[in-house]
Each structure stands twice: as C-alpha cells, then as structure tokens.
C-alpha cells in the first residue's frame, strides 16, 4: 500500500506527493503529478469543470481511493460527505448516525447524543426516528453532513455537501466548517457556488486536465444585489452621486435599471427621489438569497 494512514491527533503534516490516479491498470489518467500540502486548520477549495476529477481528488484525500502512483502521507482522522447520500439504507436517521459515530470511534451513547444535537442544529430533529428511505433529499443530506460533523474529524472532505440543503442548513454548515478549522481541523471542499466560504478560504486549487493548479480567479461580489427600476423624463441624465458600485442601464423607453448592493439600496432610493429633475421609482426587486438553489423553491 502506498498510502499511510495515521491516527495520531495534532498537527501532523498532511501532504500529497506526485499523486496520480487512474481507473484500471491501463485506463487514462484522471489525475497526475498532484502535489498538495494540507496544513492544519486550512480551508481548501477545489474547483474544476464537471467530470474533471474533482471528486476523484476528494476521494483520494479522504482515503477512500488509493493513489495509483505517488504518496499521501499524514492523513488524520477523516470524515467525508458525498454529494448525494443514498436513502437505501435500512436504518432510522438516528440509528445510522449512531452506527457511524461508533465507526468513527465514539462510544454508542456519545454518538447518539451528538447525532441528536447535530440533527437539531440542522433543523432535522423531528426526523431522527424516521427511516432513511422516507426522508426527503434535503433531510438525507442533513444526515450525511451530521455523520461527518459528529465525529469531530481532523480532516473533513465535502463533495458539494451544500447541494440539497435549505438556506438555514447551508449557513449552519458554513458555520460548522469555520468552527472546525478554528480548532485546527482541515476542511477540503468542492462546491458549484464560487462564493461558498469565499471569504475564509486559505487556498484554492483547480483541476485542469489531469493537473492541479492554483486557482487565482476571484469569486464574484458576494453581497446580495437589489434591483431598482425608475423612470424620468426623456433625456434626463443619471443622478451624479450614485452609491458606490451602482450599475445602471437605461433602455430606449427611458426606464433605468439600477443594480446595487443591498446595503446601499436605501441610499440609492434617496438619491433618485431627491434628484432634480426627480426620478419616479417603479419597482424595487429584492434578490433571492442564493440564485443557485432550485431545491429551495421546491420545499
């Protein structure tokens, strides 16, 4: 085995050296020559196109798959959250979590207590006694996330773990990730939303081809935006003192569409109403908190 599994606690150095992975002895390389250091307390983001090998890399990091070449050393106690958690297990939510808590090395009663606490934190405590197969996709995902967090792992690997969670649970997972890294645990994650945890990421990497390269693309403006539609007499110029970061476009009919950070929306409205000649505000549209969450609409 090329992989070394350490169970020691504390700030061991976790490192990938020349790691490559392919499926089968003659299959094409999915990843090759990956060097990566995962320091204690680090939050690492992995990005890449669909099917680029992000998940393969996460499974190598989590120790689920062994590298076909190269070495992974110093991997600590690990927990993994898959993107889609299966409901085809014959357990209740609390039963599964207690089993997994024991597998993570906790005594049964401690595992059950922590399972209850995490389900409650994600707003799923009323489903503790429900069979997994009867849970909605979102609640299933809460069970998958609780499974990893109740273990208080030293390395947490999240493969689009936010997908399917409601807004409150996503925020709670963001918080939990912050709590883990502040205690020295490492968190590595993939998420389709580039703003996810953008402010706290220590390093970002992108899978390109079979290589892992530093990801230098800046995440888009994280602040939620408000759209204001306003009209003025034809030919009226835009007010001079618009708040910082306001984006304005005027269409042929003389309707202007202003987009501004939610924090500055009142200032924008005040400026428009007090402008001379005045602007007539037709509509104010509040944005959806997270545009990439069709799951929420269905709930």
């Amino acid at each position: 085995m090329t992989e070394v599994r350490t169970r020691r606690t504390g700030p061991a150095r976790m490192r990938l050296t020349g790691v490559g992975r392919r499926y089968g002895p003659v299959g094409p390389w999915v990843l090759r020559g990956v060097d990566l250091e995962v320091p204690a307390g680090a939050l690492l983001r992995i990005s890449g196109a669909n099917g680029s090998g992000k998940s393969t890399l996460l499974r190598l990091l989590a120790g689920i798959g062994a590298p076909s070449e190269g070495r992974i050393t110093g991997r600590p106690r690990t927990a993994y959250v898959p993107e889609r958690f299966p409901s085809a297990l014959p357990f209740t939510a609390i039963g599964y979590l207690t089993h997994l808590g024991r597998v993570h090395g906790l005594p049964g009663p401690v595992a059950a207590d922590r399972a209850t606490a995490w389900l409650a934190r994600f707003g799923a405590e009323e489903h503790a006694g429900t069979q997994l197969r009867e849970l909605s996709k979102g609640t299933s995902q809460k069970v998958a996330v609780s499974q990893a967090l109740l273990a208080e792992p030293e390395l947490l690997v999240l493969d689009e773990a936010w997908t399917g969670l409601d807004a409150e649970a996503r925020a709670e997972l963001d918080l939990a990730v912050g709590e883990l890294t502040s205690t020295g645990a490492r968190v590595v994650y993939v998420d389709h939303d580039p703003r996810r945890l953008a402010g706290t990421v220590d390093a970002a990497h992108r899978v390109e081809g079979t290589a892992l390269v530093p990801d230098t693309t800046r995440p888009p403006e994280p602040a939620p935006q408000v759209t204001v539609l306003a009209r003025a007499r034809a030919g009226t110029p835009l007010p001079a003192a618009l708040p910082e970061g306001t984006h304005a476009e005027v269409d042929a009919a003389g309707t202007a569409r202003f987009t501004v950070a939610a924090a500055h929306s009142d200032t924008l409205l005040r400026t428009l109403l007090h402008a001379d000649p005045p602007w007539h505000v037709r509509a104010v549209r509040e944005p959806v908190a997270d545009a990439n969450t069709p799951e929420d609409m269905r709930r």
Binding site: G63, P82, P86, A88, L89
Partner: peptide, 15 residues
C-alpha cells in the same frame, strides 16, 4: 452498502 454510503464508511474507517 450503496456506493455513497460505502465511501462514507471507508473515509471513517479506511476502505
């Protein structure tokens, strides 16, 4: 075990 559950277990205990 369904594949995703197997991965969860494997990460926790080693495959």
């Amino acid at each position: 075990e369904p594949p995703a559950a197997r991965q969860v277990t494997a990460a926790a205990a080693g495959p």
